[in-house]
Design a protein around this nucleic acid. Structure first.
Lengths: 252, 252
DNA sequence: TACCCATATTGATTCCTGTCAAGCTTGTAC
DNA sequence: GTACAAGCTTGACAGGAATCAATATGGGTA
């Protein structure tokens, strides 16, 4: 039950898309400078969630797509028999809810992996706006089609690659995504638990753990809990068969 | 190199969306009767492909989304190292190319599994039309989000279920999709080869073969080459853990 | 500071499924 | 009608990862 904390921001503090540092990654990317106001008109900023809080729950009415502003989010689907499948990890600038767009209810559950701030784009207003702004509509189609492609890549990774290859691919994906966000691409902190990684990659937690230590013993990476340092990117890239070698998520 | 055969249709024969028997499955589903003309204005009908012919190729310029009119299509992505991943099978009324929408080039290759007829919706015109027709845009978003969901379901199937469960899920998916098309849901002919099934489900061909005979020995199905008859739907449904129990593709 | 529970690591064992290898079947082309 | 090739089935075997089990670590809290 997402106990949501709404910050009341003074008008002066109201961070706008104009000044947002993520504007080159997020939706504003597709919008002309002089049209940004229209996007700002519909966005709800300043929703904060603490680590572990649910941002929205599967099967509840679909209200908005949302962009991560800071922090990290994981999405997952949960089946009737209670088993969970992690469907994605989202970093600042990435858009959540595309798998629900056009539907009545959220197709997955979104959970904050750490203290996270999000911007919400109410669906109806977003759909309306995309009708008025061809570039924005085009961009939405592009984001969605890339999500489909990413999902296909994941399916390929799951069905054709070994545990080591899957984990290497995830590390490299995170690496390039962090880098694009002007953070280190070689030394970062994993926002998710081992069990989330395992679930996402279709492995047992024990296997994930084993591969991490194996990589460490081989001098490919260095880990200390959730802190990882990629020491030998080349070998890491070599571990995956030169497909699946893209950032796997929205690449604006 | 898709050697495409274009049929020149006499104006009188020009099958329209108005009279198409698939109009309750395909795009017309989202369009008011009196607006159907606008969709007909942009659709190119009567493209026929023979079994094995490529309908479009990965990385070639993305021109149109297309709807299967008759026959069956498989889509796949091919990596630099030449390995293939089948990403979907498409039956009449289903839309291909959503994973490329908004992009410059086709994200996958589409191949006719049998003699197949398709309708083409040129991208630019389609995007334009969706801007003019809110219900159509909404429907497009819905189709794409369902494609994402289906892909997530597939990922779950691949990462959590056994060979038997995966094959049972595919058979049930095909069953319900055939049924929705007013064909038998218990006795049908598989449009794809064992190797395609294997590739799609992340299995070896031999494993697919073995599971088919195992199911047959258990009296769950009967097979004769590509002909299958589902004898015990309940057991088949029981084979999959009551998730993944939807049609897995566009469910208009 | 010390405790506690969730998270992570390590070890031993089992088994599903891939791989290699060999027939078999079917459909098509000559 | 026959022959070939592609597709499919069956068997034997090995290996990677899951599972079961136990221990270690660490962050948060009293």
């Amino acid at each position: 039950m997402a106990r949501e904390i709404k910050l009341k921001l003074a008008p002066a503090l109201k961070a706008s898309c104009h000044t947002c540092s993520l504007s080159n990654l997020c939706l504003p990317l597709a919008v002309e400078e002089n049209q940004l106001d229209r996007l700002e008109d519909i966005v709800e900023q300043g929703h904060i969630y603490n680590r572990g809080e649910h941002i929205f729950d599967q099967d509840t009415p679909f209200r908005s797509c949302l962009a991560v502003r800071s922090g990290a989010v994981k999405t997952s689907i949960i089946t009737e028999n209670g088993s969970e499948q992690v469907t994605g990890f989202f970093l600042p600038g990435e858009l959540i809810g595309l798998d629900s767009l056009g539907g009545e209810r959220y197709a997955c559950t979104a959970k904050a992996l750490e203290r996270t701030s999000v911007c919400k784009f109410p669906t109806e207003k977003l759909e309306e706006l995309t009708r008025a702004m061809p570039e924005l509509q085009h961009h939405m189609y592009q984001l969605m089609s890339r999500e489909i492609q990413g999902s296909h890549q994941l399916a390929m990774l799951l069905s054709k690659n070994s545990a080591e290859e899957r984990i290497a691919a995830l590390l490299l994906s995170l690496s390039s995504r962090f880098q694009r966000r002007r953070m280190s691409g070689t030394k970062f902190s994993l926002p998710m638990a081992r069990s989330d990684i395992a679930n996402f990659l279709g492995l047992a937690v024990e296997t994930v753990s084993r591969v991490f230590t194996r990589f460490q013993n081989q001098g490919i990476i260095r880990t200390q809990g959730r802190e990882v340092e990629l020491l030998d990117m080349e070998t890491l890239r070599g571990a995956i068969p030169e497909s699946n070698r893209q950032s796997s998520r929205a690449r604006p």
